Simulated assay, not measured.
Amino acid sequence: MRTNPTGRQLRLGAELRKLRERAGLSSTQASQLLGVKQNQMSNVEAGRAGVSPERVHSWACQYDCGDKALTDALVDMAAERVRGWWEEYRETLPAPLLDLAEVEHHARRIQTAITIHIPGLLQTRDHAREIFQQDVPEISPPDIEHRVSFRIKRQAVIYRSDPTPYQAIIHEAALRMLLGGAKVAKRQLQHLIDMSEREHITIQVIPFAAGSFAGSGQSIFYSHGPAPLLDTVHLDQSHGPVFLDAEAQLAKYRVLIARMEAVALTPEESRDFIHNIAHHL
């Protein structure tokens, strides 16, 4: 029995519960249909117990799941046995941060829309350090470096040989925040320009001139999974990350990102815009 299931293990259990509920079956009815003990099913759905890929496939068939991509993805999730690099931080960082790294690692595509800070996957080490120095309550210098190291390691998803397609929509306000002073800010802006030239990375700027727009008060991270129902929204809150995966929530944030993209400059215009800001620092 697991005492500390990962976010991905919890998600697998939750998706199996959703399949059961869509089939109109109670936990008791499903356990009788599938020939398993009800407490065993409850533990699987809660992420406290593992389940074999074969059983996941069987359950999906019994639940009349017609979404092959979803079924295949859930089978793959059940088959995973390798611990990710983020597990080395299990005893030193909050679990939601590890869950975020896990979501990013498995994402098929990532979209970020942010108004105040540069997205974490595009931050320089100095920029990230300055952000952590402003945390409340204060973090000790060694712990700051520990968090900076973790954030930089997360960026592997856009540097690896099969990089994850990444779109960042950034408000002008975030570009003009002189975190760490002009030199640090200028290096951060140049880093954005350099990253925007990579084929799999799209950076778009929402200028002040765009005025008000939907989603302006939020920082949104949208991870696309192997099937739409396995997408994940991450909202960055002062008390820690919040993850959303209900169908209605996913639909809402897809619309918000689309509306933010609609008022943003093109990638080419955005690159010139960032260059102009950096030039005047």
Rank of each mutant, 00 (worst) to 15 (best):
T3D: 10
N4F: 00
N4I: 00
T6K: 04
G7P: 07
L10M: 09
A14E: 12
L19V: 06
L19I: 09
R20Y: 06
E21R: 05
S27C: 14
N39G: 14
N43D: 06
V44S: 01
R48T: 07
A49R: 12
S52K: 14
P53H: 10
P53K: 12
P53A: 13
H57N: 09
S58K: 11
G66Y: 07
L74T: 01
V75Q: 00
V75P: 03
V75M: 10
D76L: 05
W86A: 13
W86C: 14
T92M: 11
P96C: 14
L98W: 00
L98D: 06
E104K: 09
A107F: 07
I110G: 03
I110A: 02
I110S: 00
G120H: 04
L121K: 00
R125M: 10
D126R: 07
H127K: 02
H127N: 07
A128D: 01
A128W: 03
E130I: 10
F132W: 08
Q133M: 15
D135R: 12
D143N: 13
E145H: 06
Y159W: 07
R160T: 14
Q167W: 11
A168G: 03
A168V: 02
I169V: 11
A173T: 09
A173K: 03
L179R: 09
G181V: 08
A182V: 04
A185P: 01
A185Q: 00
Q188R: 09
Q190M: 13
H191V: 15
E197I: 13
E197N: 09
R198S: 13
G211S: 01
S212F: 06
G215D: 03
G215W: 03
S219C: 10
P226R: 12
P226S: 10
L229W: 10
T232I: 14
H234E: 09
H239E: 15
H239D: 15
D245G: 14
L250T: 02
K252D: 02
Y253W: 04
R254Q: 05
I257W: 01
A258C: 07
M260R: 02
T266M: 13
R271A: 07
H275G: 13
N276I: 14
N276V: 15
I277G: 02
